[in-house]
Amino acid sequence: GIGRLSDHAWVRVPVGAIVEFFRAIPVLILMIFASQIYAKFTTVSSDFRPLYAVVTGLVLYNASVIAEVVRAGVLSLPRGQSDAAVALGMRKGQSMLYVLLPQAVTVMLPALVSQLVVIVKDTALGGAVLGFGELLSQNRQITANYGANTIATFTVIALVYIALNAVITNLASRLEKRLRQGRKTSAVKENSPAETTETPAGAVSGA
């Protein structure tokens, strides 16, 4: 995401091409393609191949989406922030690291949490297609051992997903609130006038 904001075309163009390429491909296709790559060109065991394929697909797709979130978060800041950093003599890398990114984190946090929820749900694709042993795939074992309670099993699995994503969203909301409060507190301290303890010239101190 930072690379897409570079002033150098030799950095900006290749990075942009990679991000747009992996954003355009469905994550399920990336998982299947990665599975074939691991099967034909690597020595990864068949027991671990579904895990590798799922992780690879999720990383390639979601990293490209998060890169766009980072870029959009930085661009959403007022231009005066970067201008002020330049006026202080900071290079672009320093202004990005010390001025823009810390402020953009609060802006990006809701989108990042939404993407994290998507990642949790997309793991089900690996279980349904590649046989990856995640939560949804446990439906096969449960129905095989305890009868054809398919609806009840899927209901419990759905409730587990809902509870997990609710916890993630709640934690992120608390973190965002804390970051905003911390920023407001620091801003108030910086803008508060300094206390003066000067004694007037004509005042006489005594008991």
Results as ranks from 00 to 15, higher is better:
D122L: 05
A158M: 09
V129S: 09
A72I: 10
N139T: 15
D122F: 07
Y61H: 15
I29C: 11
A111I: 09
V44W: 01
G127H: 12
A166E: 09
A87K: 05
K121Q: 07
L116P: 00
Q103S: 06
L130R: 14
Y146I: 05
D47F: 13
S95L: 00
Y52T: 12
L125T: 09
T155C: 09
A72D: 12
I66A: 07
L75A: 12
G93Q: 00
I32R: 03
Y52Q: 12
I66K: 04
G57C: 06
Y52N: 13
V120P: 14
F132N: 10
V55Q: 06
Y146R: 10
I151W: 12
Y52M: 15
T42A: 01
F48V: 11
A85W: 01
Y38L: 12
Q115K: 13
T123A: 06
T106C: 06
V156M: 06
T150V: 15
K40V: 13
A148I: 04
R71N: 05
A84Q: 01
L97M: 13
Q141K: 13
S35W: 11
R49V: 02
L109R: 00
N149K: 04
D47S: 12
V65C: 10
T42D: 04
S82C: 00
T56F: 01
I157D: 03
L97N: 10
V70L: 13
F132S: 10
A166N: 08
L100G: 07
V117G: 12
L125M: 14
S76Y: 08
L60Y: 10
V74L: 15
R91D: 01
Q103N: 13
Y38E: 01
K121I: 01
S95M: 14
S95F: 00
L60M: 12
V129C: 08
L28F: 11
V120I: 15
A85F: 02
A24K: 04
I29T: 07
Q141G: 05
L88R: 03
M96C: 08
Y146H: 12
T106V: 15
S82W: 01
A39Y: 08
V65H: 08
G133M: 02
A53K: 03
G131A: 10
I66W: 01
P50E: 00
Q115A: 01
I157H: 11
A128E: 09
Y61Q: 11
L112T: 14
I142D: 01
L101Y: 03
P78S: 10
Y61I: 00
L135R: 10
Q103R: 14
A148P: 00
N165G: 00
I162N: 13
V156F: 11
I168F: 14
N145V: 07
M31A: 01
Y98D: 02
L109K: 01
Y61E: 03
E68S: 02
Q115C: 05
A34D: 06
V160C: 06
V69W: 03
L136G: 08
